Amino acid sequence: MREWKPHPRAADSLKGSLGQAVLGEQVWACCDPAPLSFAPLRDPAPSPTRQSSRAVQGRVRRRSPPARLSHRCRPGRACTTLREQHLVPKEHRHCPAGAGMLELPFLPFCALLGGLGAVCVAFVSAWCQRWRGGFAWDGSAQMFNWHPVLMVTGMVVLYGAAALVYRLPFSWSGPKFPWKVLHGALALVAFGLAVLGLVAVFSFHNAQGTPNMYSLHSWLGLATVLLFSCQWLAGFVSFLLPWAPAWLRALYKPVHVFFGSTILTLAMVSCVSGINEKLFFSLKNGTTAYSQLPSEAVFANTLGLLILLFGVLVLWALARPDWKRPEPDSVEAHQPLLSAER
């Protein structure tokens, strides 16, 4: 009985734990091992009369692609080709990467993240209402309390929601324009709340005779809002205006994604530094020093941790490859939504 082995020229490439199919000089690397048929080895000394016919049969066999693969590529696994990718079946040319990441459905994660964002807004509102005297718009200390509430709501929670619009499975099919509008509208509302927060703090400082823009928190916060305004304007011109050329969109898209994550990180740092600065100023002349960790300090510190947790989870969701919207030329773009693999 003849022994079935891969072609000698491809024997050196059979390494690692990936299942590989070798047909002649073509090598396929797949997610899971699958039984594939190989051409039999030639006899050590074939007869002259049969040598030409067997060589022809061997060439035909070596050039024929695998008839069937017994597995389907799963999210979190990678299918690659070592040579001649155009000969590999289409369903195995692209599989989502991220083999080392935790497999988690997006919609439950999104609901959890929305609840966490609501908790952040509730915490900052309760802090200003319970310990800082409530809210007003008259240049008093109560007017300043609008600043942390509006900044956390706009620059952290709504901004994070806008960043995750394209991760919704519902946005993976059909026209992309409505989701662009939703993404831009959420970002615009977040920017409007941030501007109102700046108006509140500057009006309070001017009414009380307090200098503006002297602390690191104020520098970092204003730089974040200005960068956000440039980001929104550039995104509007590049992705929403109909006359923007395709090459401009393709060129600016990775820049837009990078600065989107950067702005969220800067917003988190600005909020945490602002909470810390407010506690130092408010508890400096209070009955209990900040170093004694009064109840207000514990509550505000917990708020800072919640803001960091929310932002880190948003950045983690943005970094997951299997939650990204498939590109139009990928196989995932033609798969059904909310299928079992997702």
Score class of each variant (00 low, 15 high):
W4M: 13
W4L: 15
K5H: 07
P6Q: 07
P8S: 13
D12H: 13
K15I: 15
S17R: 05
G24K: 09
Q26I: 08
L36V: 08
L41K: 00
R42Q: 08
P44Q: 12
S53P: 00
A55Y: 05
A55K: 12
Q57Y: 01
P65I: 11
P66F: 09
A67G: 04
L69D: 00
H71Y: 10
R74H: 14
P75I: 11
G76N: 02
C79D: 15
T80A: 12
T81D: 14
L87R: 05
V88A: 14
P89Y: 02
E91F: 00
R93G: 11
P96G: 12
G100K: 02
M101P: 03
F106V: 15
P108H: 10
G117F: 00
A118Q: 01
A118G: 00
V119H: 04
C120D: 00
C128P: 02
R132L: 12
F135K: 07
Q142R: 15
W146Y: 01
V152E: 00
G154K: 01
M155G: 13
M155A: 15
L158E: 05
V165I: 15
Y166E: 04
P169G: 01
S171T: 15
V181I: 15
H183Y: 10
A187E: 06
A187Y: 05
G192L: 15
L193I: 00
L198Q: 07
A200S: 09
H205G: 07
A207F: 06
G209H: 10
Y214D: 00
S215I: 02
V225E: 07
L227M: 12
Q231S: 10
S238E: 01
L240T: 04
L241W: 12
P245G: 15
P245I: 15
R249D: 06
A250T: 10
L251Q: 08
K253H: 07
F258C: 10
T262E: 01
T265H: 05
T265V: 09
V269C: 13
C271A: 09
I275F: 11
L279E: 12
L279G: 06
L283M: 11
L283K: 08
N285A: 13
T287L: 12
L293V: 12
L293S: 10
V298D: 07
T302H: 03
L309I: 11
L313T: 06
V314A: 10
V314S: 06
A319S: 13
K324A: 09
P326R: 03
D329R: 11
E332D: 12
P336Q: 06
L337Q: 12
R342P: 03
